[in-house]
């Protein structure tokens, strides 16, 4: 029932938000319309962190309840999180290229997201390299828990203890009211897309397992 409502809500939220962000959102005084990439960049980064957090919860639930359903959530959530991390990196690079003059500046946040991508790619690699099928989800779950322990450091601590080019770190980043509306719409839209994608991936997994 809730998922059916979400399926209807997603296009209702995302399509007007997209039109607003691309065509009508206010123009920034210093960097002009270039800033509009943040309407994709911030929601993608947000979804990446949410997806990794979902994977953490799924892993803990799988280990404690021993139900493969939670492992499917944890596994697929990492894959979706990786996809959104890559989107966040690409949109961030576009913003960096037009604003800071170079697509890659080894800024702490850029470094952090690359480490996150490598770490969760390593999760998939480890998962596929385990030769004992019964142990595969268990080992992957413990790895996912350990991997998430570094997320607070990479997302919250590292960018604050080192100097960064990102607007909030250098005292800027003042979004005006109109910009916030677009960003809020995109954040809700991306979150709905994430939930629907995760549900779809888990249902496909379940169907495949039943077929086998």
């Amino acid at each position: 029932m809730i998922l059916s409502i979400m399926r209807i809500m997603t296009p209702i939220v995302i399509i007007p938000s997209l039109f607003y962000c691309i065509l009508y959102s206010p123009v920034e005084k210093v960097i002009g319309i270039t800033y509009r990439s943040i309407f994709f960049h911030i929601p993608s980064a947000w979804i990446a962190v949410v997806a990794f957090a979902v994977s953490l919860v799924g892993s803990i639930l799988f280990l404690t309840k021993n139900d493969l359903k939670y492992d499917r959530f944890a596994h697929r959530s990492v894959e979706i999180g990786l996809l959104f991390s890559i989107i966040a990196t690409l949109t961030g690079s576009v913003f960096a290229y037009y604003t800071w003059g170079s697509a890659w500046n080894w800024d702490p946040r850029e470094t952090s997201i690359i480490i996150l991508i490598i770490m969760y790619a390593a999760y998939l690699l480890l998962r596929n390299s385990i030769s004992k099928p019964k142990l595969r989800p268990r080992i992957a779950a413990v790895y996912s828990i350990i991997a998430f322990l570094t997320v607070p450091f990479l997302v919250f601590i590292l960018p604050r203890v080192t100097s960064s080019l990102h607007p909030e770190s250098i005292g800027g980043g003042g979004l005006t009211g109109g910009m916030w509306i677009g960003l809020a719409g995109m954040l809700i839209g991306f979150t709905l897309i994430f939930i629907l994608l995760l549900d779809l991936a888990v249902r496909i997994d379940k169907g495949m397992e039943e077929k086998l």
Binding site: I115, A122, I130, R136, Y143
Partner: peptide
């Protein structure tokens, strides 16, 4: 070791966790 995974996987899996 527990998963009998290939030993060559180890540095690839460990480095990103250790990087911070």
């Amino acid at each position: 070791a527990r998963g009998a995974a290939r030993g060559s996987v180890f540095p690839i899996v460990a480095l990103p966790i250790i990087l911070p």
